Simulated assay, not measured.
Amino acid sequence: MWILLGIIVVLVVMVYVLLNYYPAFGARQSKARKAQLSRSAQYGAKKFRNATPAPIDNTNMGGKIKLLVEFAKGNPKGRPAIPVAVEPFRGSNGEVGAEQSGKAAITWFGHSAAMLQLDGKTLLLDPMFGRAPSPFPFIGGKRFSSKLPFEIEQLPLIDAVIISHDHYDHLDYGSIVKLKGKVKRFIVPLGVAPHLVRWGVSAAIIEEHDWWDEFEYAGLRLACTPARHFSGRSLSDRDATLWCSWVIEGRESKIFFSGDSGYGPHFKDIGDKYGPFDLTLMECGQYDERWAAIHMMPEETVQAHLDVQGKVMIPIHWGAFTLALHDWTDPVERAVKAARDRQARIATPKIGETVFVPSAAYPSLPWWR
């Protein structure tokens, strides 16, 4: 009995130390910060809330056990049989005359990470460049590609890093530590700043925003817009920070970045207020009927693109990691079919391939096959 008690005490102490001192878990909100965050219209009952409730259908014990068993078994087609090939990143400088033409340049790096070059500014969206979306990358499901299209040290000076929420597949400790020395500004939803500060980012270059905030940065017009999702990095911080989507507008092009979201009326609200968009980066992957309220099905992704009045859509949140039970190519196959059925224009660039907006022809080859 004493041996068992000793083991339990050791385990409790280890968990406590990890949660409080392991940097990848991020920072807890202080009482003062909680009081400040509570002034948001999105805050209630000591946490942030969705405008449209987002229940998850696996809340009972039986459902949780079934889900754990399914994940333990896995899906043989949940990962590619061979590593996914990537295009070496060249950016807007890789195409003669692209900079002079004033075109926006978007490069998708797999999952939700992307670079947007707009009006001479370089933005990184949810730059998760780590091996696995986990606080312990050596035990998480590794990236589909054997390498990135670049080395972080080779990236140009970044005018801003824009974050949609604090989940590990969108806000990565290792990536931020490597990037922070070449980033002028971090733009994040409410509550996320303490994570960055703990990781060595100066508070002076971080700005937090609530839904429907409109502001300018470096000549660009931005708006923090709603999403239907949740947040958290450890056992006790569920919904302690806000999640969002982003509107990014330059002189000639307007881009919508969905972040993570279940389908909901907020997409039409965003389209009515800020549309049309020259290009949308829309969440498409890691879904399941049991958590459809927080991750869209591919057909809903296409509908959300139409709701925000997008002209061209790049499906994101797939192609890098397995976080659900569907086949790894299911998101893009279904999205392409739904786009064709609804006469929506879709672009399917390779990981690392730069897309220019506007363009007479967008990438459409089924490279994943």
Score class of each variant (00 low, 15 high):
149 P>L: 05
150 F>R: 08
150 F>L: 04
151 E>C: 02
151 E>N: 12
151 E>P: 01
152 I>Y: 00
153 E>T: 02
153 E>W: 00
155 L>N: 07
155 L>S: 06
156 P>R: 03
156 P>S: 04
157 L>E: 14
158 I>N: 13
158 I>A: 12
159 D>P: 13
159 D>Y: 15
160 A>H: 14
160 A>K: 13
161 V>N: 12
161 V>E: 13
162 I>K: 05
163 I>F: 15
164 S>C: 01
164 S>E: 00
166 D>H: 11
166 D>I: 02
167 H>M: 08
167 H>Q: 10
170 H>P: 01
172 D>E: 15
172 D>T: 06
174 G>T: 04
174 G>K: 07
175 S>R: 14
176 I>E: 10
177 V>K: 15
177 V>N: 09
177 V>P: 11
178 K>F: 07
179 L>I: 05
179 L>K: 11
179 L>C: 09
181 G>N: 15
182 K>M: 08
182 K>Q: 14
182 K>P: 04
182 K>C: 03
184 K>I: 02
184 K>S: 13
184 K>T: 01
185 R>D: 09
185 R>I: 03
185 R>W: 14
186 F>E: 06
186 F>L: 06
187 I>R: 06
189 P>T: 02
190 L>H: 00
191 G>C: 10
192 V>G: 03
192 V>M: 09
192 V>H: 08
193 A>P: 13
193 A>L: 10
193 A>T: 07
195 H>L: 08
196 L>N: 13
196 L>T: 08
197 V>Y: 01
197 V>I: 10
197 V>K: 07
199 W>Y: 14
199 W>D: 15
199 W>Q: 14
199 W>V: 13
200 G>I: 02
200 G>Q: 05
203 A>P: 15
203 A>H: 11
204 A>T: 03
204 A>V: 01
205 I>K: 12
205 I>P: 05
205 I>L: 09
206 I>L: 07
206 I>Q: 03
206 I>R: 03
208 E>T: 08
209 H>E: 06
209 H>C: 04
209 H>D: 06
210 D>Y: 09
210 D>E: 12
211 W>L: 01
211 W>R: 01
212 W>Y: 13
213 D>R: 01
216 E>R: 13
216 E>Q: 14
216 E>I: 02
217 Y>L: 11
217 Y>D: 12
218 A>Q: 09
218 A>C: 03
219 G>M: 03
220 L>D: 11
220 L>P: 05
221 R>C: 06
222 L>W: 10
223 A>V: 08
223 A>H: 10
224 C>N: 15
225 T>I: 15
225 T>Y: 10
226 P>Q: 03
227 A>F: 05
227 A>Q: 09
227 A>T: 12
231 S>W: 04
231 S>T: 14
234 S>W: 09
234 S>E: 06
234 S>G: 06
235 L>H: 14
235 L>A: 15
237 D>V: 00
237 D>Q: 00
238 R>D: 06
238 R>M: 08
238 R>G: 02
239 D>I: 01
239 D>P: 04
240 A>S: 13
241 T>A: 15
242 L>E: 14
243 W>A: 15
243 W>L: 13
245 S>P: 04
245 S>R: 05
245 S>H: 06
246 W>H: 12
248 I>E: 06
248 I>Y: 12
249 E>Q: 13
249 E>S: 12
251 R>V: 03
